[in-house]
Design a protein around this nucleic acid. Structure first.
Length: 794
RNA sequence: GCCGCGGUGGCGGAACUGGUAGACGCGCUGGACUUAAAAUCCAGUUGUAGAGAUACAGUGCGGGUUCGAUUCCCGCCCGCGGCACCA
């Protein structure tokens, strides 16, 4: 039984005093930038699931340190956001105070687990010296026309009283509080992420070391689809309905055209529509539906025919009726579709309900018929030729559409970065001059959201009212703030040069450390933070601030740790396991090893407190084995096992197979312990026992340091070089061949590694267990796999 | 509906490019030590039959390829995650 409390405290203090984990900026060494997704410091503190990813990066960082890299492994706080603000409203304290308290607690917990962060580079998104640059980047985007003011309806959370981005809505509900989201027209700032949609999609191909699951989620979210815009002239009118379709090839089966209820043409054609009151009533009812009601797939399709209107199919001149129906979304494509009930499920439902013609034009084998001169072509070929024809006749054009929408970037809340813009009566919207940044978030009387479309900042008259830097006349500050996701879009760059007062990162530091070599975090960020950060990074590349097009070379997602009841750890279920208790009872080292041993890193794992006692026992064994130097009687087999283990542990760590690395170490320690018990001697020399400790060190740094010191080493184990394996010792001298009869294992035979095929087969036929099976049988085939097996087919 | 991931003992999970299925750990059973318990140590632990050697079955289900399949192919079932009236 070792005293983990004193050992862990001792080494944490020594590490802090020596500054051993400070990044050296040693240009003679190769760089390695390893990053965790920085946490939001919540009031509850860490639960046992949070550090899983941090443990993994800590292990890899320590391995790389020992392998001679200049390692950058920083940590910081993503500290703007709603929970701190809601806490502030409830308790009438400044959110900054709650946040500062939480940060202290988080930092204590992280240090308790022995992480090797370089705390001199700590950043906090709520620090004006930090968000000065968040505002600066926003300003550059605004100058390039990538930030624009919009009045379109957006997602509005009536409980949080703020607008939300599409990414913040889950299943029609507010991602933060679960309230049903409404559509509300509102003035807002929007970032034109759609301008980067193509690059965000195409450049995923340049990221071979990204988790494929995350890449797929991003592809899905961007949702590129290729098709064509097609113009349908309206009979007896100079207006045209442009529809978007990915299936031009089915156009000869088009039996009607549909407009979204919000489509501009509906009101523009009002005078020609003879049943306007019906149409108006329909539009009114859709307006009152929530998005969730509108997009419910199971609901009946509804719509109203626009009497008096006929649209002309440009391919065959056919006149088809026009409907308005809310199954067509105004926000996607052109807000109008051509309906082909024979080849589209949704159109079919609608056609059946309103008794519209259903005309098939493509066979099951994908060949067109009844399609004029395009008949007999394949769908694919027809799409090409028909699009060419459209462009030649000027009746339409090729078109690419995306599901991703521009990023609604303003929030009507207090605890966020002020948007650095002014509204001047004469000059319109004016950017705050760069030398006046940061626009510091002022203190307010009440943090309560107003619900008026303005943030609580609007109440501070002497902050809001200012002068226009362009004309010197009166101007008002923008009172909306940035969303939670703003500060995290670029934080990985600030770690490179956290105290730079002149630029967000210097050219030298950027060139030295960019891009991030390894980034680890939760998959829930796939379509938010990870898309936003790539978007900002590409923008920064375009304006020459960074030198790479992608910020993160390798991305690995971490699997959740769920409670012992199989549910997500939450106060609500009372299944939260606190790392403080676990570290107190079993030690930080045992907790670290356990979390890595639980299972595959990227898969969800169920917490089991019994399991941690197993890794504690493992560490006890090592402690017993290594704390006292004894006589050495070298055992060749165990020496070979040591070298195999060195190879395996090194490979496994780099490939996120921590569970099998730990298992390999357990096997080695078990062998050494058994030998020690039987012979009262080490099976390995002191130098080789030290190699065992070096392998343990990334996983259990405190115990490894302690035992390393006991073996007589004066410098930290993390200043030593990662052991190399001897390829000759990894190879087996004697191979145990399995002998099969008809593919079934019937015996084994030990042969020297250099034995020939004939020798092995010879030996195999004489194994008693095999002789029995071969007796009186004819061997039809002999299969020999070098180093593995012999199989007799009889 | 579309995309992705997964299904192996009582449990978490191993198994390299098709080659000993169940490593390692937890739990459980029996034993040693102890007045007793905890801790520790030893033995066992997929199922069926058998005292045992051993035999047969066995990696979600049904087929296939192969000397040999958890691994490859075809067709399903179930679970998880993402997207979704996206035309």
């Amino acid at each position: 039984m070792y005293d983990h409390r004193s050992i862990e405290q001792k080494w944490q203090q020594l590490w802090q005093e020596s500054g051993i984990y400070r990044t050296r900026e040693d240009l003679s060494k190769p760089k390695y930038y390893i990053l965790d997704m920085f946490p939001y410091p919540s009031g509850e503190g860490l639960h046992v699931g949070h550090p899983k990813g941090y443990i993994a990066t800590d292990i890899i960082a320590r391995l790389r340190l020992m392998k001679g890299y200049d390692v950058l492994h920083p940590m910081g706080w993503d500290a703007f956001g709603l929970p701190a603000e809601n806490y502030a409203i409830k308790n009438k304290v400044h959110p900054r105070l709650a946040m500062e308290k939480n940060v202290i607690n988080y930092k204590r917990q992280l240090n308790m687990l022995g992480f090797c962060y370089d705390w001199e580079r700590e950043i906090n998104t709520t620090d004006p010296e930090y968000y000065r640059w968040t505002q600066w980047i926003f300003l550059q985007m605004w100058k390039k026309g990538l930030a624009y003011e919009s009045h379109a309806p957006i997602n509005w959370c009536p409980s949080c009283k703020t607008g939300l981005a599409n990414e913040d809505v889950e299943d029609g509900h507010c991602e933060r509080c679960g309230t049903l989201v409404e559509q509300k027209p509102m003035r807002q700032w929007v970032l034109k992420i759609t301008d980067y949609a193509d690059r965000l999609l195409d450049d995923l191909e340049k990221l071979p070391e990204w988790d494929p699951a995350i890449k797929d989620m991003q592809r899905n979210w961007i949702g590129r689809s290729e098709g064509a815009d097609i113009n349908f002239k309206i009979k007896d009118s100079d207006q045209t309905i442009t529809v978007f379709t990915t299936r031009v090839d089915t156009i000869f089966g088009c039996s009607y055209v549909v407009l979204a209820p919000e489509h501009k043409l509906v009101t523009a054609l009002r005078n020609q529509i003879t049943n306007w009151s019906d149409v108006e009533a329909y539009i009114e009812t859709t307006k009152n539906k929530t998005d969730l009601q509108r997009t419910d797939l199971n609901k009946d399709k509804t719509g109203v025919k626009l009497e008096g209107l006929l649209a002309i199919n440009p391919f065959n001149g056919e006149e088809v009726p026009v409907y308005v129906a809310d199954y067509v979304l105004n926000g996607y494509g052109t807000g109008a579709v051509m309906a082909v009930p024979a080849h589209d499920e949704r159109d079919l439902k609608f056609a059946n309900k309103y008794d519209l013609p259903i005309k098939g034009v493509v066979t099951e084998t994908g060949i067109l018929h009844d399609s004029g001169k395009f008949s007999d072509l394949t769908s694919e070929e027809a799409r090409k030729q028909m699009t060419v024809w459209l462009e030649k006749e000027k009746l339409g054009s090729k078109r690419v559409n995306y599901k991703i929408n521009d990023w609604v970037y303003s929030r009507q809340r207090y605890w966020g970065e002020p948007i650095p813009l002014l509204h001047c009566e004469k000059c319109g919207v004016v950017g705050v001059p760069e030398e006046q940044l940061p626009v510091v978030l002022p203190d307010v009387e009440s943090y309560e959201p107003t619900g008026t479309g303005e943030s609580p900042l609007a109440a501070i008259t002497d902050w809001v009212e200012t002068t226009c830097p362009t004309c010197g006349g009166p101007a008002k500050r923008e009172t909306n703030t940035m969303p939670q996701w703003g500060g995290s879009c670029w934080y990985y760059l600030r770690y490179l040069d956290p105290k730079n007062n002149n630029e967000l990162v210097s050219k030298e530091k950027e060139a030295r450390w960019s891009p991030v070599d390894l980034y680890v975090g939760g998959a829930e960020h796939a379509t938010r933070h990870l898309i936003y950060a790539r978007f900002w990074h590409k923008f920064l590349f375009d304006i020459g601030v960074v030198t790479h097009e992608e910020p993160f070379t390798k991305l690995q997602h971490v699997g959740l740790i769920v409670g012992e009841d199989g549910r997500k750890m939450s106060k609500r279920w009372g299944n939260v396991i606190n790392p403080d208790n676990m570290a107190e009872r079993f030690g930080a080292d045992a907790l670290r090893v356990y979390e890595m041993f639980m299972g595959p890193f990227d898969q969800a794992a169920v917490w089991n407190t019994n399991g941690i006692s197993g890794t504690r026992k493992f560490l006890e064994k090592i402690e017993k084995l290594c704390s006292e130097q004894v006589e050495v009687k070298v055992d060749k087999k165990i020496l070979s096992l040591l070298h195999k283990t060195i190879k395996k542990v090194g490979d496994d760590i780099e490939n996120f197979r921590f569970n099998t690395a730990v298992s390999a170490l357990m096997i080695l320690v078990n062998e050494l312990t058994d030998y020690y018990t039987a012979n009262n001697a080490w099976a390995l020399t002191k130098e080789d026992m030290a190699k065992l400790l070096q392998m343990i060190a990334p996983f259990a740094p405190h115990l490894a340091e302690e035992l390393w010191e006991k073996l007589g080493y004066k410098q930290s184990i993390f200043k030593s070089s990662w052991p190399l394996f001897d390829a000759n010792l990894v190879k087996d001298e004697v191979i145990s061949y399995m002998v099969q009869i008809n593919g079934k294992l019937r015996g084994q035979v030990e042969m020297p590694a250099e034995a020939s095929e004939d020798e092995v087969i010879m030996a195999a036929t004489t194994v008693p267990a095999i002789v029995k099976w071969l007796e009186g049988k004819e061997i039809r085939k002999k299969i020999f796999v070098p180093g593995r097996l012999v199989n007799f087919v009889i």
